[in-house]
Nucleic acid binder design. Sequence first.
DNA 1: CATTAAATATACAGATCTGTCTATTTAATG
DNA 2: CATTAAATAGACAGATCTGTATATTTAATG
Lengths: 188, 188
Amino acid sequence: MIKQRGQVVVDKILDTAERLFFEQGYNITGINQVIEEADIAKASLYKHFGSKTDLLVAYLQRIHERWFDKLEADVDKVADPKEKLLTLFDYHRERQLQNGFGGCRFIKANDEAGMSDERVLAEIQKAKQHLRDYISMLVVNSGHQKLLTDKELTELIFMMLDGGIVAASVFKQADDLQSAKSIIQKLI
Amino acid sequence: MIKQRGQVVVDKILDTAERLFFEQGYNITGINQVIEEADIAKASLYKHFGSKTDLLVAYLQRIHERWFDKLEADVDKVADPKEKLLTLFDYHRERQLQNGFGGCRFIKANDEAGMSDERVLAEIQKAKQHLRDYISMLVVNSGHQKLLTDKELTELIFMMLDGGIVAASVFKQADDLQSAKSIIQKLI
DNA sequence: CATTAAATATACAGATCTGTCTATTTAATG
DNA sequence: CATTAAATAGACAGATCTGTATATTTAATG
């Protein structure tokens, strides 16, 4: 599959937006900086994305897809169904170590623009709900000790992942995600 | 205690900043909007706060103090030491219901300005660590069943509170904080 | 080779941003 | 009442913001 001419430009825009929106934040990243660092023309950006908000929505869709594919790939490598649950924490932890404890991009986007645009909020909700459903499936298949119900364990893991990422982003270390993993290990 | 003339102005500035930084976010709230809605002069703002960042730091100190005082007051009303732990979730839940699921102001500030200014990050860390230490004290005195160690239970509650607030802010409902309370209830 | 669509460079509008400055008015105190 | 400090209104600088428009160049296709 050969890339179309437009696809190269779109990719350059999204690559740059992905980096800047995460490192700096959405609101303080200007369109002018995006086009300069992406090395494309402003008219090209507005041809492919009608507005800065549209770019944010496309950014969220893109990171949702890519982030989730990698998560599933990591979980698929593990055979033991309980270990699959623990892999969730490893994945989140490694991501935070890699990206310098920048936190969760969906939470960041929600804090910056979630209240102002319903399409943005919808994409964030979609991504978070997708993760919760995925956790639920893993929990049901995990054969855990039923100290908690399936629903409770799902909620617990879901909230500890977000709580652990927030702690990593605030304290600039990933110890909390490690603790979270140990705690879940005890409870399954 | 009679208020000094300057105190009135400072209070009006901080009241307005507190509202706008939370409702709109720090980055998209302009100084001009603050002075207009606070109904004070720009020179007054820059007399009391050297820069917009200084105002953010003062805002964080203020909400840390006030938020924590109310939390302690709520916990103090409860006699049972295990129930005190559960009150943490009630408090967080009620706050989210009151403020329209706006999430945590410290996490918001961290996402918007934590990476760019070390004083801001320090205030956020101070507030979060304060909460963690407080939870730890309550856990030690709770007489819980020791299914988890004191340290683990502290971490668990700490992360579930943040995770629950994030979920409330994303999904615009507080069910997750209710679930979190039920789960902790089972584990203590 | 001619046509067509995409991407480019660049200027521009109109608004907004933080922060500084001057000059004036207000209010508290000796 | 006179003095002094605080608060005010408002202009201003210099930069940046999103989004539009124009005119030119590039590259793919029939």
